[in-house]
Design a protein around this nucleic acid. Structure first.
Lengths: 346, 346
DNA sequence: ATGGGCTACGCAAACGTTTTCGTGTTGACA
DNA sequence: TGTCAACACGAAAACGTTTGCGTAGCCCAT
């Protein structure tokens, strides 16, 4: 077992100083061609690679991006990561992932753990619990210490930092407009509680679309799912809530769901109630994941281009990191949504 | 913008030496209670946190685990990551993720990038291309340099390192036995080319199950999907191949698919051909992801407990890292599979 | 012979820690 | 008063780099 070789060892072996070795490897003109070649040959032979940690310490930058997300077993978030990773890699950065599990405490711990030198900046999406408690001190402190943050998807306006979001309200309008065009008269929405910013915005888009078409919204058609963290475990209660929605509103002919799971579940419940899709009931979801694509019938949905979001977030962060001037910009990029029409609408 | 405070700054501010500060913070008996409290108060006030990078350099360990996987937008792999992350976090480690995209070159690059000091050890699942080329030098070299590796799922026996696998062949037998018990006489398998170790093993389990029941395998019932990297894009060709399978073997009454996508697609194709599931055709998949759970009918499948795999892999790696003696053990842990019966079988 | 200017290299500091060892000051004791 | 231990602290090395600067040795011109 041969340990990694260091400059010091090469220097000793070749009987020169450490600085000579370092300079030789970096092709400094200070070093004679003779020794330069000798050193380089030796380094190659022993497969010398500079130690990243030492470089990080010296340069005071790690070339590593910290990602904090609520969960990773989730199509959208993993898509975003893949986007981040792709541009990060291209630009010579690594990504280190922390999971908050939607918990405020874990989000804080994770960020503190990484903020102490391990990374150069954060890309994150806020945990539900944090949104609920509205305690954002860990974000502001991080930023105050000079460590940039890029937020995506679940963001909060008060914090001055780069953000990448989709136009949720616009996407929702896309969806609801489609339902209206297709002749739906009683369109229900299955959404989250308001503290989830994206849920709120999508609900808002739903309302605007109705308004645009002079349709009065009905409170009974708005289901704000009572989520205990939206784990897949309490799927039953979700089904029950949706079931009640349908039973209390027999005339529903369109459903807009703010995420895949809600949409799929709505479809399942509707089918159990004997409704035909899309003949009796049309459904549009949000987020284009595997579920939507492979559902039967395939689900019409609003794609938010997760990968693109990740790519853009990484670009913003890295640009920020590599900018010379110390101005702190705070850009908000909106990624276009797109309605993908499949079989759950006419 | 106040930068992170260092020992040196505290020392200067309090007019003591750096070593005194360090010792005071670590409650050394060498330091008088007086100065100890003073230093600690000051440190708390300025929210001092030791710099991870400096610690890593000094201790020659980073408390970070490198994960290299083929893709992250994938239910199984993200499950594994969540398992790794959970025990890593509990034991004070971070995880840094590299994606190979099934490419040999990217796998090598990623590993080299991380191996130079950034991490203490690897947990990885091998890229298809690597398996195809059978070039494993990057693994052996990494291990030779004293950096431990734990492989999971897609492993290769020649390499001496810890491994966490599921009993693929056993899991496949579970699935096929179920089909046989349920009365299937002509069971097809939709699998991968043989160089994907898990595909091969599952095929093997399929054959063994048939043999156990004195059923002669028929070559025409074995479809080894011609995958160009199994991206979701060339889904069409997958459908066509499965379509041909059914058309050339009208008597198929059971299908075992080695992954979710194959299973779902088989179901879709079967339905198009007018087959009723599970009446005319029973299907069992492998890997318990969202697709299986939410498919209609819900898919009977072999669960491989991805999260548990990740947890075990992390335990093995960290135990290895924190072991005192320098013996290099090489343990292989087999995680039990489980047949989850749902609606696609009788 | 002196000075100047290259060339080719080494020294040392710096990044932020931890830890070993050395040492100045105190008080007690003979 | 002199000795010694205990106490409280500082100096310095080490982890592995990079880099500004100093300088020894040489050649050439004056």
């Amino acid at each position: 077992m041969k340990r990694k070789v260091t400059l010091k060892q090469i220097a000793k072996e070749l009987d020169v100083s450490i600085s000579t070795v370092s300079k030789a490897l970096r092709n400094s003109v200070e070093i004679s061609e003779d020794t330069r070649l000798k050193v380089q040959a030796f380094a190659k032979l022993y497969n010398y690679r500079p130690n990243n940690i030492a470089l990080s310490l010296k340069n005071r930058k790690t070339k590593t991006i910290g990602i904090i997300i609520p969960e990773i077993v989730h199509h959208f978030f993993s898509k975003v990561i893949s986007g981040i990773e792709s541009v990060a890699n291209k630009r010579g950065y690594n990504v280190i992932v922390g999971l908050s599990n939607e918990s405020f405490a874990k989000e804080v711990i994770n960020m503190e753990m990484l903020a102490n030198g391990s990374i150069d900046g954060f890309i994150l999406s806020i945990a539900k619990e944090t949104l609920q408690q509205q305690d954002y001190h860990h974000f502001t402190e991080t930023i105050n210490q000079g460590m940039p943050i890029v937020m995506f998807d679940r963001v909060v306006n008060d914090i001055k930092c780069d953000k990448v979001i989709v136009d949720d309200s616009q996407g929702a309008k896309l969806a609801v407009n489609k339902l209206i065009e297709n002749g739906c008269k009683n369109i229900a929405i299955v959404t989250t509680k308001d503290y989830v910013s994206v849920g709120k915005l999508r609900t808002q888009g739903y309302l605007e679309a109705l308004e645009d078409h002079k349709i009065d919204p009905k409170a009974s058609l708005i289901l704000k799912v009572h989520d205990q963290l939206l784990s897949e475990d309490h799927l039953d209660s979700l089904e029950i809530e949706i079931d009640n929605l349908f039973k209390n509103n027999k005339n529903i002919d369109g459903v807009f769901a703010v995420n895949e799971l809600y949409a799929i579940t709505a479809m399942k419940v509707a089918r159990k109630l004997g409704l035909k899709i899309p003949e009796d009931l049309q459904i549009v979801g949000f987020t284009d994941g595997v579920l939507s694509k492979h559902a039967v019938p395939a689900l019409t949905t609003v794609s938010q281009h997760g990968k693109k979001i990740g790519e853009k977030a990484a670009e913003l962060l890295i640009n920020n990191l590599e900018r010379e001037d110390e101005e702190d910009y705070a850009e908000t990029v909106v990624i276009e949504t797109e309605l993908i029409e499949r079989k759950s609408t006419k």
